[in-house]
């Protein structure tokens, strides 16, 4: 459970829930999922960090005939990932950079395991969509995005890549959590830049889109 400062007041964010409780909420929207083809997406933090709960939940959701997806960094052991895959229709996975050094210096983690896992997921047959946050000074060049796209295009069955332009909606959360926001001066990429990058993605044969 996390506490944070919101509008000057300390507030507990989130609550402990059981799979059963979450399912009760989910089935309320089943009529709309049925019509939209939508469903349940486990998102961040990192859902791969809570395999026991997440897998049980995904299993229940699938049993209800509802589509499932996960948004993930893909940073986990193969065994953990393998335990999720039978209950996932779609994996939305971040690939932030193909260059190991640069990846490590910005995220604190090497990307070798991530790239390996991407291939592992693609080969498992799940629908894999690659997502790349476009962050000026980190990866917003045609070469860098092009390299990610080429890698993604080399994965079996991967057709889509989403470019997510950097946004500043989370700026206030960091001080609220007592953490430093390390990119205070970065501005969202321009529309022109985003279209250049989209072109670089589409050139690899993938279907690119801006926004998720």
């Amino acid at each position: 459970m996390q506490e944070m400062t919101l509008a000057g007041q300390t507030k507990t964010v989130g609550r402990d829930v059981t799979v059963g409780e979450v399912m009760e909420e989910i089935i309320r929207d089943r009529p709309y999922f049925r019509r939209s083809g939508g469903g349940v997406t486990l998102s961040g933090g990192e859902a791969l960090c809570q395999p026991e709960f997440a897998v049980a939940l995904l299993k229940s959701v699938k049993n209800m005939g509802i589509n499932t997806a996960i948004e993930t960094t893909g940073y986990a052991s193969k065994e953990v990932i393998a335990s999720y895959l039978p209950y996932l229709d779609t994996v939305l996975m971040d690939i932030k950079h193909t260059d190991g050094e640069k990846h490590k210096s910005f995220t604190g983690r090497d990307n070798a395991k991530i790239l390996e896992n991407a291939r592992f997921i693609a080969e498992s047959g799940a629908r894999l969509v690659i997502r790349t946050p476009v962050i000026p000074t980190f990866n917003d060049t045609v070469d860098e995005i092009g390299a990610i796209a080429s890698f993604a295009a080399s994965l079996p069955g991967v057709r889509e890549l989403h470019l997510l332009p950097y946004h500043r909606i989370g700026t206030d959360k960091y001080p609220g959590l007592g953490r430093e926001y390390t990119l205070p001066d970065i501005r969202p990429p321009s529309d022109e830049r985003m279209s250049e990058l989209l072109y670089a993605v589409n050139r690899t044969g993938l279907k690119g889109q801006i926004g998720g």
Binding site: P31, Y32, R34, R35, S36, G37, G38
Partner: peptide, 14 residues
């Protein structure tokens, strides 16, 4: 638009 149509359909299904 798709989500909106799904909302109308979902409400009507009920």
């Amino acid at each position: 638009l798709e989500s909106f149509v799904a909302l109308v359909r979902g409400y009507f299904d009920q």
